[in-house]
Write a protein that binds this DNA or RNA. Structure first.
Length: 1026
RNA sequence: GGGCGCUUAGCUCAGCUGGUAGAGCACAGAUCUGAUAAGUCUGCGGUCAAUGGUUCGAUCCCAUUAGCGCCCA
């Protein structure tokens, strides 16, 4: 006996009730342990940060992560999954700053780094409960009890080991990096933060400074110079960068004009002459950009005269033979001149066609500086104030602008100035305009292994495929060294110590090395809340082995992307943990599968790939699904400010986790963006879950009535075409789902499962109903039960990785309830194996045709306005081949019953269908004609059916149970009497309505009765429990 | 500004190596039903984003453009 199943169901409730079962039976752990001796399947979990609530996009990623290991476990793989948490980084610090009401590094240091970092540590897990609750509720199975945590000492130790490895290979160096910098907060901003703060129509100065030419390689210029002064006219919107100017750039191929401006000559791009207001002046001569190159000019402000250092990149060769550029301070030069260079970033769109280059304040400028060995002048400090002894020294850059302009004006070095409106980035927190600022940073020389990374990429399976050679491949091709240090507080400390006396540096690769070299007591970090973090680690000093001086730690912390990218080994505490060296042999590395959203191509996907290539020369993951983003129903990005963020709990509580999971897995291919709308999740409930549920409840209802007991071997030998067909479809489905999942395509697999459920419900069950309803037990009925049972049980296993709850519900009732010796959970069973011998393509296409013929037949009936309940004598089908005809003949009973006709005939062409008394319906290459002639007998039979239909409805209204036997009473005119006296009709009626007796006289009471007019004949019907 | 992706019915999506388009939902009318919140039939809906090219033939291949999304500037 199965547990009775109501056709009404609340999936969300049902799911909540299953979670305790899994806990009690320890199903997750057992599903793993049971396969302990088998081949591994390794998922790397990309660590989220738990300092915010999980959103719908996290659900999406977790569902995609979950489906594959679940499948693999059922296929027999050993698939432990370790949860992970990303705990470091600027986002965490920003949260704490917000809570403390502070917003600058100075304020943090005043507050105290120790206190600050403690707050960070607390804040990291402030939403952990919500994360765990969500993870459990959506049935994302992973080991939440033993996660890797990037701030743990053991994790940090592996990161240190990693850095040391790279250090020893000579892959770590210090250099400059231009970053968007907020002078008020004293902090670099991540690109994400910068993107938040762009403002359109920002007003800035539009300035044309003049640079006085001193000499040129070009004879014409030198000749003109004898005549009157020549100036190069540049253009900028940031006058405060002008003291940092160390070159002017032109476009080599562009045409430049030397304009006679009365007392002076001005050089600028010919195309931009008019725009600059020099359209009417006489053009003395024109030159190619390449001809101006190396023209020398006087700086507007010679740094040497204003107490600012002038540094120049100089080539040096280190011990390991690698060429580097080091910035060396230059001797003061009162007659300093700079030169004109040609670059490809000069455009003729605005300005003067001559670009002012200040390597300390812009990425392209900085790179040009390196390429052309330009001087590097940093006349602004991190607070955005000018240094040195300029007249405007000590001023904030934006306020210095005016004074600089006035100064240039006074010295005759300003051609003109105005205002411009453009888009400019501001600090998203304090609204201060950002400065692009070159800062010292530590780099990993990833370019050293660029080719290897590209080669390794070839070994990866990307889904969707285009990421491989597109976004990711391009990123690798354009690889630049990884600036991995941050001048912040809450992060893995950079394990580099530097001698204050001789400058020697040492990298520490383990805790024991640190203890050994510094002589500290390990207890000073082992037992403290902050462990290896700042500031305690900053206090650790060691003795320089070269000069005996004191070594102090470099103050930076490490980019948290390096933390997460190192998880492939740090989660195992490699190489310190005993046994961790086996990870390369036992399948724990590389991962078989990872999955995150597409923004991780340059984030986590890259950091994993880069680190494993750098460290081991190996790939880090074999298969990767790259998910598209979730947008709102209008296609807009979800954001708090727009108020269009979807709360996953709301969706789950309403529709259940299974529906949401199914939505995530099937609504679009994984790489596409998803426009999320609740309605679509609801549609899944209606279109898929409820249909399956009703097949299930149908089965249970009748199985209980008939006391059906499933055969123990489940080896169903179907004996009807219908059973053979659905078993064939089932095996095809197993084959396809298996294949799709094997190819990391749950979307296709899911869509095929939807089709199967439709076929099962709308053809198999629909056509089989009478087989279950017939009261006597016979082989056909048993075959129907066996077949439907097999379909449902098998389907529950196919469904398990996708909809773990519903699959479990089916399994518990259909299998566990009747067979206590079976596995405790569907998730402990094996994935079904397709029996290819049972796949019958011939039968499959015949059935497809039969379904189509029925569809056409119904359309034909509808066209002739004849109800399906009215039996007809004949249907004629036009077929295009013998095999079609033979296929249909085998399925003749199904077609006849579905269409309610007595006989079927075939013709070879559509033309033959057009006969009188026939109604036709044609579509494509098939056509159907129905005989519309209704004999007296057919009419009477139709009436009997009509009466049966009314009686069935009355049984329901009277509240009878489905299996209740009844007595039927009737009154009617002569015609009705005649129908009800027909033997065949009465037998049919009895069987359909479970009537023991059909009586022409009503009893006095106890009868539920209704009156009708059927086909013009008045009828009164009554039903009563027998 | 650069790279990648997307654009097919009102909505969500199919459409394999080119042979002039399909499904589900929604909507309207009819209909069936003792499993069904479902099913069936009919209708409503598309110059397959635009332009040009290759081809006997293009939703599909190529180029350009536009819009959207993401990443990077």
């Amino acid at each position: 006996m199965f547990k009775p199943v109501s056709s009404k169901v609340d999936f969300s409730k049902l799911e909540e009730n299953l979670i305790p079962l899994w806990k009690e039976k320890n199903v997750f752990k057992r599903s793993i342990e049971a396969r302990k001796n088998n081949q591994r399947f390794t998922l790397f979990e990309g660590p989220p940060t738990a300092n915010g609530n999980p959103g719908i996009h996290h659900v999406l990623a977790r569902v995609f992560k979950d489906v594959m290991p679940r499948y693999k476990v059922m296929k027999g793989y050993y698939a432990p999954r370790i949860a992970g948490w990303d705990t470091h980084g600027l986002p965490v610090e920003l949260e704490v700053e917000k809570k403390l009401g502070i917003s600058s590094k100075t304020q943090i240091e005043e507050y105290g780094i120790a206190k600050f970092n403690l707050k960070c540590k607390e804040s990291v897990f402030s939403y952990l409960k919500n994360w765990d609750a969500m993870t459990e509720r959506i049935a994302y199975w992973c080991d939440l009890e033993h996660p890797y945590i990037t701030m743990d000492n053991s994790y940090i130790e592996t990161v240190w080991w990693t850095i040391k490895q790279l250090w020893d290979k000579g892959l770590i160096y210090q250099g400059y990096r231009v970053t968007p910098h907020c002078p008020r907060c004293g902090t670099s901003l991540s690109s994400h933060e910068v993107a938040q703060g762009y403002k359109e129509n920002t007003e800035d100065p539009s300035v044309y400074p003049k640079f006085k030419v001193t000499s040129s390689e070009k004879e014409i210029i030198n000749n003109l110079l004898k005549d009157k002064p020549i100036y190069l006219v540049a253009w900028t919107t940031t006058p405060w960068t002008l003291p940092g100017n160390t070159a002017l750039a032109v476009a080599a191929a562009a045409e430049y004009a030397v304009v006679d401006n009365g007392s002076e000559y001005l050089i600028l791009a010919n195309d931009l002459r008019a725009k600059a207001g020099l359209g009417d002046q006489k053009v003395q001569t024109t030159l190619q950009g390449s001809e101006i190159v190396n023209t020398r000019y006087e700086p507007l402000y010679n740094p040497d005269q204003f107490g600012v250092e002038r540094r120049r990149p100089m080539k040096t060769t280190s011990q390991d033979g690698v060429e580097r550029k080091e910035f060396r301070v230059q001797q003061a030069d009162d007659k300093l001149t700079y030169r004109v260079i040609a670059t490809d970033f000069v455009t003729m769109e605005d300005g003067s066609g001559i670009v002012h280059v200040a390597p300390a304040f812009g990425e392209v400028d900085f790179e040009a500086g390196l390429a052309f060995d330009l001087d590097f002048v940093q006349q602004v400090d991190l607070a955005g104030k000018l240094i040195g002894n300029y007249p405007f020294a000590g001023k904030f850059v934006k306020s210095a602008d005016k004074e600089i302009l006035a100064d240039l004006q006074a010295r005759g070095l300003l051609f003109k100035s105005g205002k411009v409106l453009h888009t400019y980035p501001f600090c998203w927190r304090c609204n201060t305009p950002l400065l692009y600022y070159a800062k010292q940073s530590w780099y990993i020389r990833t370019t050293e292994v660029k080719d290897k990374m590209i080669a390794n990429n070839e070994k990866l399976n990307w889904y969707p495929e285009h990421i491989k050679n597109g976004r990711f491949g391009d990123w690798l091709k354009n690889n630049v060294d990884w600036a991995f240090s941050r001048e912040r507080y809450w992060g893995t400390p950079l394990p580099v110590w530097r001698c204050e006396t001789c400058g020697k540096m040492e990298c520490i690769g383990s805790i024991s090395e640190l203890v050994e070299k510094s002589g500290i007591d390990p207890a000073c970090f082992e037992k403290t809340a902050l462990g290896l973090h700042r500031p305690a680690v900053d206090e650790i000093k060691m003795k320089c082995t070269a000069c005996g001086g004191q070594m102090k730690r470099a103050t930076e912390v490490i980019d948290c992307w390096l933390d997460s990218g190192d998880m492939s080994i740090a989660q195992y505490h490699y190489p310190f943990n005993p046994g961790s060296k086996d990870i390369f042999k036992d399948g724990r590395f590389p991962a078989d599968y990872i999955c995150e959203a597409v923004d991780q191509t340059r984030g986590w996907f890259y950091s994993l790939h880069a680190l494993s290539t750098l460290l081991f020369g190996e790939i880090c993951f074999k298969n990767v699904i790259c998910l598209g983003h979730i947008l709102d129903a209008e296609g807009e990005k979800m954001s708090k400010s727009k108020g269009n963020v979807v709360d996953p709990w709301k969706v789950i509580n309403k529709y259940g986790a299974d529906a949401l999971r199914w939505y995530c897995l099937t609504v679009t291919p994984p790489g596409n963006v998803k426009r999320f709308s609740e309605d679509q999740v609801g549609e899944i409930t209606r279109r898929f879950q409820l249909i399956l549920w009703n097949v299930y409840s149908f089965f249970v209802m009748y199985a209980n009535i008939d006391n059906y007991v499933p055969a123990s071997d489940m080896n169903v030998e179907p004996d009807s075409e219908l059973d053979c067909w659905i078993i064939s479809e089932l095996n095809k489905l197993i084959r396809d789902v298996d294949h799709d999942l094997d190819n990391y395509n749950p979307t296709e697999a899911g869509r095929k499962m939807e089709i199967f459920v439709n076929d099962l419900s709308n053809w198999y069950v629909r056509r089989s109903r009478r087989r279950f309803w017939k009261s006597e037990s016979d082989t056909d009925k048993t075959s129907a039960y066996n077949t439907l049972y097999l379909c449902l049980v098998t389907f529950s296993k196919l469904l398990a990785p996708f909809m773990p709850f519903m699959a479990e519900e089916l399994y518990q009732n259909l299998v566990k309830a009747v067979s206590p010796g079976s596995p405790d959970s569907v998730h402990l069973t094996d994935f079904p194996v397709a029996d290819l011998a049972k796949i019958n393509d011939q039968l499959s296409s015949s059935t497809q045709l039969a379904i189509k013929v029925c569809s056409l037949g119904r359309a034909a009936r509808s066209g002739a306005n004849i109800k399906v309940r009215q039996p007809l004598s004949k249907v004629v089908v036009a077929v295009k081949s013998r095999s079609e005809r033979e296929g249909l003949i085998k399925l003749k009973p199904q077609v006849l019953e579905e269409l309610n006709v007595k006989d079927i005939d075939f013709v070879d062409s559509m033309g033959e269908l057009n006969q009188s008394n026939y109604t036709c319906m044609l579509e494509g290459e098939n056509g159907v004609a129905l005989c519309t002639e209704i004999s007296v007998e057919l009419e009477m039979e139709g009436m009997a059916r009509e009466i049966v239909h009314r009686l069935q409805t009355m049984r329901k209204s009277a509240g009878f149970e489905i299996a209740d036997q009844i007595i039927t009473f009737f009154e009617g005119d002569e015609y009705i009497q005649k129908v009800m006296q027909d033997n065949a009709s009465v037998e049919y009626l009895k069987q359909e309505t479970l009537s023991r007796n059909v009586l022409g006289v009503f009893p006095a009471e106890g009868v539920y009765s209704e009156s009708f007019k059927l086909g013009g004949h008045p009828v009164k019907l009554g039903v009563k429990k027998a």
